[in-house]
Amino acid sequence: MSDLVPSAQVDVKEVNRLIERNDEDNTTIFGFWVYLMTDCVLFGSLFAVFTVLRNNTFGGPGGAVLFSLPYALIETLSLLTSSFTCGLAVLSAQRKSKKQTVFWFVVTFLLGATFLGLELTEFHKFIAGGNSWHRSGFLSSYFALVGTHGLHITIGLIWIAVMTGFILKRGINGLTMKRIRMLSLFWHFLDVVWIFIFTIVYLFGALHA
């Protein structure tokens, strides 16, 4: 960085202040990251419960009967794409393009809402077919694991909506940028958790037939 030696033209204090502000933002983002890691342990416990109870169907249907793989694939692809568009929103925000950022967040929101709608439809189908969480330990653990993920998605959608309003009102500045980065971490994280739900609940479930 030898070409970045401060000269008389710039206020050294201003540079220091910017770097310090940035460190503070990084502290916040690091703190959020630690929270996400604790959330991973929360999901880990739910995965442990699911795996232990997966065969406790108590005479009810198992995963191979209930789950439709193509349906789960569509859910997966919509969430995965939303993760990508969320990344595009971050890139637009880095370029300070307010319009594009809002656009990509709206797309992310719609994809996320699609995912949530698909999930709720699946829940409704199971419950209407007499296979609610009352039915067996297996179904209890299925609803708990997938439902907790869905709850996180719901929180994420609320956050995206609030964030979009915030960007529209205040534009892209240091504060919104910091929050956009945290929101994108949250959204990508939900995608990562879903990889394991897709594999362990749906794909492994289909193999258990």
């Binding site: 604790t38 959330d39 342990v41 929360l42 416990s45 739910l46 419960v49 232990v52 109870l53 406790n56 169907t57 108590f58 009810g60 969480w133 009352h134 067996s136 330990g137 297996f138 209890s140 653990s141 609803f143 708990a144």
Partner: peptide, 28 residues
């Protein structure tokens, strides 16, 4: 987080009739 989840599951058993830790219904 493990405590949070464990207690939630017990509460679900008690309020929504799930079968995580019940003696019957496929709980453990």
């Amino acid at each position: 987080p493990i405590l949070t989840i464990t207690l939630i599951l017990l509460s679900l058993d008690r309020t929504l009739g799930t079968h995580f830790f019940t003696a019957g219904g496929g709980g453990n």
